[in-house]
Lab assay of single mutants.
Amino acid sequence: TRVETATETAWISLVTALHLVLGLSAVLGLLLLRWQFPAHYRRLRHALW
């Protein structure tokens, strides 16, 4: 049971790290898009909202 718990903890930390990385890359990508294509971003936002 001790090994299982350790594996579970490792998986949880791995998944958390993955989610953090994905979230950060998504935010960075959005910022980059907004910085590179302001007109396109505004049009996209206008279409979405």
Rank of each mutant, 00 (worst) to 15 (best):
T1F: 10
T1Q: 13
T1G: 06
T1V: 13
T1I: 13
T1H: 12
T1W: 09
R2H: 11
R2F: 13
R2A: 12
R2S: 14
R2D: 12
V3M: 05
V3H: 00
V3K: 02
V3W: 00
E4Y: 12
E4N: 14
E4C: 08
E4M: 15
E4A: 12
E4P: 02
T5D: 02
T5P: 00
A6I: 05
A6W: 05
A6K: 10
T7K: 13
T7G: 10
E8H: 00
E8A: 06
E8F: 04
E8R: 03
E8I: 03
E8S: 02
T9Y: 09
T9K: 12
T9H: 11
T9G: 12
T9C: 08
A10H: 08
A10C: 02
A10Q: 13
A10P: 05
A10D: 07
A10K: 10
W11D: 03
W11I: 12
I12N: 03
I12S: 06
I12Q: 08
I12G: 02
I12T: 11
I12M: 09
I12H: 06
S13Y: 13
S13M: 12
S13N: 07
S13I: 13
S13D: 06
L14S: 03
L14H: 03
L14R: 03
L14V: 09
L14I: 09
V15G: 02
V15F: 04
V15A: 01
V15T: 05
V15P: 04
V15D: 00
T16G: 07
T16H: 04
T16K: 01
T16M: 09
T16D: 00
A17F: 08
A17S: 09
A17R: 05
A17N: 01
A17K: 00
A17T: 08
L18W: 10
L18C: 01
L18F: 13
L18V: 08
L18Y: 03
L18T: 03
H19I: 03
H19D: 02
H19P: 00
H19K: 01
H19Y: 02
H19V: 02
L20G: 09
L20Q: 03
L20T: 06
L20C: 12
L20H: 00
V21C: 12
V21K: 03
V21Y: 03
V21T: 12
V21S: 13
V21L: 12
V21N: 00
V21F: 13
L22G: 06
L22H: 05
L22V: 14
L22W: 06
L22C: 14
L22M: 10
G23C: 13
G23R: 00
G23A: 12
G23H: 05
G23T: 13
G23W: 05
L24A: 08
L24C: 08
L24V: 11
L24W: 08
S25Y: 01
S25N: 12
S25D: 08
S25W: 01
S25C: 14
S25I: 01
A26H: 07
A26W: 08
A26Q: 01
A26S: 11
A26M: 12
V27H: 03
V27L: 12
V27G: 10
V27S: 09
L28R: 00
L28I: 03
L28D: 00
L28V: 00
L28A: 02
G29Q: 00
G29W: 07
L30Q: 01
L30W: 07
L30D: 02
L30K: 02
L30A: 13
L31A: 14
L31D: 00
L31K: 05
L31V: 10
L32Y: 05
L32V: 14
L32G: 01
L32W: 07
L33R: 01
L33P: 06
L33N: 06
L33I: 09
L33V: 09
L33F: 06
L33S: 04
R34M: 07
R34D: 02
R34W: 05
R34Q: 03
R34S: 08
R34N: 04
R34V: 06
W35H: 15
W35M: 15
W35N: 15
W35E: 11
W35G: 15
W35F: 15
Q36M: 15
Q36S: 15
Q36A: 15
Q36N: 14
F37N: 09
F37V: 07
F37D: 06
F37E: 03
P38N: 15
P38R: 15
P38E: 09
A39E: 15
A39H: 15
A39Q: 14
H40K: 11
H40I: 07
H40N: 09
H40R: 09
H40T: 09
H40E: 09
Y41V: 15
Y41K: 03
Y41R: 06
R42E: 11
R42I: 10
R42T: 15
R43M: 11
R43G: 07
R43Q: 08
L44Q: 01
L44T: 04
L44D: 04
R45D: 02
R45Y: 07
R45F: 05
R45K: 15
H46Q: 14
H46E: 09
A47E: 05
A47T: 09
A47Y: 09
L48R: 04
L48P: 01
L48C: 15
W49P: 06
W49F: 00
W49E: 03
W49G: 03
W49N: 15
W49C: 03
W49L: 06
W49R: 00
W49M: 06
